[in-house]
Design a protein around this nucleic acid. Structure first.
Lengths: 95, 95
DNA sequence: GGCAATACTTTGCGATCCGAGGTATTGAAA
DNA sequence: TTTCAATACCTCGGATCGCAAAGTATTGCC
């Protein structure tokens, strides 16, 4: 989840709902994450200092927009490495 | 976990402890799973009818040897497909 | 005799995913 | 004009699960 969210925000800030839709889109439905999953995960990442958020209003709806912090970018880099290592090991075992 | 264990047993039966060692080996330490993880997972898979086990004794030590059932093989095939789909989606998002 | 390795078991904590329900606003359809 | 889908957020509770930790028992080496 952490990697998923950090990666989704790597191209620029997005608000929570947009993150959900982005993930539904780019993964062709493979990651159809419930809001009850994504929102708490975003809070967690912000609490950990990996994301920062700001409130705004667009067409009468309040939005909370998240962006990567420096630590978030560093974490993303680590997580990507870890994912590659994991995927390789899986391929090795499952092959 | 399920995929990991089913895949490890696809070449033939192994007893629990051997499964742990096998996973440590083929993944070059990437999957250093605690026994408290593997044994309960094996019980779960057996309870689900995906594995079957038989007791034996080798050099004074009792062993529980697991093998894939027909349903286990079917499950393995499904899980492999699912893994590939997941890995592709991850690559798409993380790329 | 002691200690590492083999082999299996159980308990309990912490993390986390998700379904389900809730609030509020906008805009289009009926 | 009322209703409903879509947008956008929040929160609770159940269920699962990985793992650390501790325990039992045997063999075999030092």
């Amino acid at each position: 989840m952490d990697l998923l969210l950090l990666a989704t925000l790597r191209r620029g800030p997005l608000h929570g709902y947009a993150v959900v839709e982005e993930l539904r889109g780019t993964s062709e439905g493979a990651f159809d994450l419930a809001e009850g999953t994504v929102y708490p995960a975003l809070y967690r990442l912000e609490a950990a200092g990996l994301l920062a958020s700001t409130w705004s209003t667009a067409s009468g709806r309040r939005r909370r927009t998240y962006r990567l912090t420096a630590r978030g970018r560093a974490k993303l880099a680590r997580e990507r490495k870890e994912w590659r290592r994991f995927a390789e090991a899986m391929t090795e075992v499952v092959a």
